[in-house]
Design a protein around this nucleic acid. Sequence first.
DNA 1: TAGTGGTCTAGACCACAGC
DNA 2: CTGTGGTCTAGACCACTAG
Lengths: 241, 241
Amino acid sequence: MKTKAQRIYDVLAANIQNGTYKPNSKLPSEHDLIAQYDVSRGTIRTALDMLSQDGYIQRLKGKGSIVLDVAKYNFPVTGLVSFKEVSKIMHGQVRTIVNELLLIRPDDFVQSQLDVGPTDDVWRVARTREIQGERIILDVDYFDRKFVPYLTKDICADSIYEYLEKELNLSISFAKKEIVVDSATDEDKAWLDLGDFSYVVVVKNHVYLEDVSLFQYTESRHRPDKFQFVDFARRNYLSKK
Amino acid sequence: MKTKAQRIYDVLAANIQNGTYKPNSKLPSEHDLIAQYDVSRGTIRTALDMLSQDGYIQRLKGKGSIVLDVAKYNFPVTGLVSFKEVSKIMHGQVRTIVNELLLIRPDDFVQSQLDVGPTDDVWRVARTREIQGERIILDVDYFDRKFVPYLTKDICADSIYEYLEKELNLSISFAKKEIVVDSATDEDKAWLDLGDFSYVVVVKNHVYLEDVSLFQYTESRHRPDKFQFVDFARRNYLSKK
DNA sequence: TAGTGGTCTAGACCACAGC
DNA sequence: CTGTGGTCTAGACCACTAG
């Protein structure tokens, strides 16, 4: 069950993306939207706040809400978005190859990254992402078996996240993302078309559930020439000191 | 003039960072905070929403607000934070060298990035960031002179952002950030201690003011071994389809 | 002056957690 | 059952924009 605010967000976001509301034009005023959707001002403002946070609009005191040029920001590649969701947007030839699916006893590195003990079971999944015929990304995932008891190659080939959220009802809440550059490992060289590149861009992700338990650690290893990370950032409260 | 919610945010954030509220413990309930700060529930909730957005707490229905381990996320390196703010956190030897400060006529590239015409004046600032004696980052900034009429080497050596916000009263609102890997240019080689590296990590930033005008384009070029980008991301509305 | 968004209040009903 | 956070409402006052 979605909230009223989320439904209004969905409608307005869709109308911005399909051009019903054009960039640099104004959205209807809060007063108008209240009448249009027959809700209170608080609800409308919640929806508008979400649109602002996601880079759809800019709100201006005394003026109104201006529609931003969504195309310019070619997001969402930011936030927490799974490869399957991204591939829809890219609407190009993308393919996932499951290289490896193992249940392992974690070494020191995995223990520290996943916050598990040496006797806990951990899934290790290695997948190659092929884009337009080239193997560009190597995703290595570690899942705490406490949260994911069962996993198959078929699930990995499709979308692990969909399985986790829809089948296991795990609710992903937030993640800490880190981007660094690293030398290519033998695994990288084996499963990626690296050509002359001797290094990769690594996106490390620690993913947490709603109850704050850490359940996944992922390394997404990219061929550098194809790597791109796009982010829409509002000046946040931290810097408003 | 700060809002009540922002002041409450500041107090709670400070108390989380200094350990008054410990990781994995609970914040006082909304009811308690209402009594403590003598405000309405909406105001308290606004402050708690901001804390959640910035990764300080996790809110759990029926339970309360849990304090997250801020140290684990070693932010803020995310969002829009200037180098001066970052250097405070790094509390290491950091130094800024102003290589170049020029008023130029923009070429095609700068025209497209800054959305200006060929006869508009544009500032070009090139600065090297030295960390622990090594020249690690090359920042190249382009400012539309419409917004920044006057600029000196002294201002660039200190903090351009402080000057823009406090002196010129420009209010930065949001940015589009893009991270890619690029071959090192002659300028990179001249002004950075690249050693054997033949490539750099480039953070491109388009910065917008509150009235949605684009006023700055920046390339921050990093030596790859020292590059790190950390982000705290909540699963956002876009992916909640 | 009229219209806009920004903030704050007071109260209501709900779903969920835990005893 | 009580206490918690999640959502929604109705109304108020303010600051800013623009004619």
